[in-house]
């Protein structure tokens, strides 16, 4: 297994933390992982993205321009990374934030109403975990339990009471793509 993905959106949508959680979870399962953030001026508001690789073997490059999956949370990122998905790959995108999704017919595109569902969970910040749940349902990269384990590392202790809510969000995401898998 070698999964190369890019997660992209606005700063504040949880792009970097989603990627870091996934990388941690990979490490919990003793896989090789890389998390490469965009750390330029764009981090201070504007677009943010990170590359995550989870693999059974040594990861050659943290710099990649063709991805198995792109998780896209805003329109500029859709425009920028749509063409960077390998043929046969996946795009998961947030329904409310994207007006013009990819029209490529050589990849699978999944529209995830994560903002709406996060609001139903009474916590808009769970949006990124809903998308991550959808991604994990489509790609068995790591187990949900490992994500929860990882959240203990990524979240400061004062937020650990939110971990059950994050679990709900992961399951909701899986449910949303349930009809596809």
């Amino acid at each position: 297994m070698n999964k190369e993905l890019i997660i992209a959106g606005f700063g504040g949508q949880g792009v970097l933390s989603m990627g870091m959680t996934l990388a941690y979870a990979g490490m919990v399962e003793d896989k090789e992982v890389v998390w490469m953030p965009s750390y330029g001026p764009e981090m201070r508001g504007g677009t943010a993205n990170c590359i995550v690789v989870v693999s059974d073997d040594r990861v050659s490059s943290p710099i990649i321009n063709q991805f198995d999956t792109a998780i896209i949370l805003n329109q500029p990122s859709m425009d920028k990374f749509e063409s960077a998905v390998k043929p046969g790959g996946h795009i998961l995108y947030e329904a409310n934030n994207i007006m013009n999704p990819s029209t490529r017919d050589d990849i699978s595109t999944y529209k995830i109403p994560a903002v709406v569902e996060a609001n139903k969970l009474n916590n808009p910040k769970t949006m990124n975990m809903i998308i991550l749940g959808a991604f994990l349902a489509l790609n068995s990269v790591v187990k949900n339990e490992s994500i929860l384990e990882a959240l203990k590392k990524v979240l400061p202790e004062r937020h650990h009471h939110l971990i059950p809510l994050n679990e709900k969000a992961l399951l909701k995401g899986a449910e949303l793509v349930g009809e596809f898998v």
Binding site: A23, M27, V34, W35, M36, P37, Y39, V59, P62
Partner: peptide, 8 residues
């Protein structure tokens, strides 16, 4: 990049 990226 090597300074900012995370690996195990």
């Amino acid at each position: 990049a090597l300074g900012q990226m995370m690996e195990s």
